[in-house]
Design a binder for these strands. Structure first.
Lengths: 151, 151
DNA sequence: CCTTGACCTTAAGTTAGGTTTAGAAATTAC
DNA sequence: GTAATTTCTAAACCTAACTTAAGGTCAAGG
């Protein structure tokens, strides 16, 4: 198989460390779009190695697959992305990450000041942050330490 | 219902902001242990408000329910936990959180230095951290930017 | 007493992010 | 030219953390 024919899904899997099934799944989620060879098998560009690596990094940063798809849509569609292109779309990751770090640091500092001091009764306590919780899991509002709306 | 009879599950749900179904689920997972009134309904202590609040906070910190159960097992079983007891078991959360923050800061700094500079080819790059990925989701090792073992 | 709302249990459904399985077709290796 | 790999699709299965549904009981108000 000549280089110009592209990578098979197995080759891409070996290069990225992802499972073949995961790569197919990402395709189903719109994160990557291979073409097909005459036999119907998927073929990938070398640039897709970097694309999938970016997906993996973004996942570590806590983005969901739809969010990553959104970020990737910022890449040029008509040509192979350049380092500058990657740098450009990484800006979004950067601010996402800054936010997460800020949140965690705030939580940590208030773990000391709040659980530590034994107050644990809110909403004056900054551990009270329904938005963070709502995003992180499940559905509906939650309140901490006994300060539900009804009192 | 007198105060000494304890809280119903609905009352506890209102005080914590959790869904009734979630509280029953936590019980099934061994995170909380109500007693039953003569009619078979669950009754909770006021201290359980704090217990569930702790569960919610620990979840924000990224602990799984089994992990939280483990942490909670550090509380005294024979009496209502004091602020000091809560402070004590919060130490584990603290180090967990410190680790997460360190990881994210490392990732952020290398996002600048690595995606930013356009190198994106590893393993010299510190974004390469299979352990973090392996923990955060799914199964098996993954490699970034085309540096799988086979080369 | 009767109704309404809260509660009970068990089982099945939900979402995210994948993996596994099965049977068939394409490719590669010898 | 075979045999062994790889790949294909579709559908089922998996875990975590819950929610929803179905059918029945308990408790509080008038």
């Amino acid at each position: 198989m000549a280089v110009s024919d592209g990578l098979s899904i197995g080759a891409l899997a070996r290069r990225t460390g992802l499972a073949v099934s995961a790569i197919r799944y990402y395709e189903a989620q719109g994160l990557i779009s291979p073409w097909r060879n005459p036999g119907g098998q998927r073929r990938y560009q070398r640039a897709d190695i970097r694309r999938l690596s970016f997906v993996m990094i973004a996942q570590q940063f806590g983005l969901t697959l739809p969010e990553i798809r959104e970020v990737l849509s910022g890449l040029p569609g008509n040509r192979t992305p350049t380092p500058k292109d990657w740098k450009e779309i990484s800006k979004g990751l950067r601010s996402h990450l800054d936010q997460r770090i800020d949140t965690l640091i705030r939580l940590r500092d208030n773990l000391d000041g709040c659980i530590g001091c034994g107050c644990l009764s809110l909403p004056k306590c900054a551990l009270y942050n329904p938005d963070d919780r709502a995003k992180s899991h499940g559905s509906g509002p939650r309140y901490l330490m006994g300060d539900a709306p009804e009192g």
